[in-house]
Write a protein that binds this DNA or RNA. Structure first.
Lengths: 145, 145
DNA sequence: AATAAAACGGATAATATTATCCGAATTTAA
DNA sequence: TTAAATTCGGATAATATTATCCGTTTTATT
């Protein structure tokens, strides 16, 4: 897998929370993990990390749950979720795992791999949560199965 | 990491073996793991897998070791090493981990992710071992550090 | 003030990946 | 034919990732 399971769940959870927030609703752990098909307790850990990274917001107590501000929904990009959970290494790391792979000391796939890695970074850095949650709202995309 | 550590070692080992084979030499586990900077015993397991996948050949006994045929060096592509070690899932799988992500039931990043995933597949499917081992021979690329 | 619903945080467990160890089988050479 | 060098294969260990459990804290409602 390109991203860790934690990261996959994190992105799916964020998109669901965003969709609900756009609808003016707050949503809780139970609903989230049910809707995205993820284990509840594990998802809770990931949501905590997203809160600490200021990607989502949480409210404790009855009628509490998770939400996103309109600003966050519009401005936060996919890349930020990946960086918050998996770290940004994926977008920099050598394809063959070399520590010091660079222009001056490249691995054999450096040039070709860089193109793909940059394409991934560019794609994720230009895709907002809003853009993706809109697809959910239109039911032209899904978060489960 | 995009690929597992096993896969990274596997690609690096294959390229080193190819380089040596082009030079008309056979090389052994010790030299390989030293030259690519990988743990010996773990590398042995990976080499065995590559032998069973007909990517490299092995010879037992003194003066034994691993080698590649000229044909294999020219015809085998990077993608085959990845498939032998990590399986081909990376090139098919949904970016958000959905089991049934497809054109008719897409995840929100399906279209955009597919482009990048296909670029990776295309790149690896069109890059031969020969092309990469040549860079090693020219010392314009490295397998360690 | 008491109760209940929710997120939070720490500890632990289960599983997958990475790594090591060691004896067996094979082959070459003395 | 014995010894040594090598790959092979099975068992085990170490580490990272994924997952669960349970008590604590916060907050809204009664």
């Amino acid at each position: 897998m390109i991203f860790s399971k934690a990261c996959e769940y994190g992105i799916r959870a964020t998109l669901y929370i965003a969709q609900k927030s756009v609808q003016g609703e707050r949503t809780g752990l139970k609903a989230i993990s049910k809707e995205i098909g993820s284990p509840e307790a594990f998802t809770a850990k990931i949501l905590q990390k997203l809160v600490r990274s200021n990607i989502i917001e949480s409210t404790k107590g009855p009628y509490g749950g998770f939400q996103m501000s309109r600003k966050a929904i519009e401005e936060i990009k996919l890349v930020q979720i990946v960086e918050a959970i998996d770290g940004g290494d994926i977008f920099i790391q050598c394809g063959l795992g070399l520590k010091e792979c660079s222009e001056t000391h490249p691995c054999p796939v450096h040039d070709k791999f860089k193109v793909v890695r940059n394409a991934l970074h560019e794609m994720m850095n230009s895709t907002s949560i809003f853009e993706l949650s809109t697809k959910l709202e239109e039911k032209s995309a899904y978060l489960k199965r």
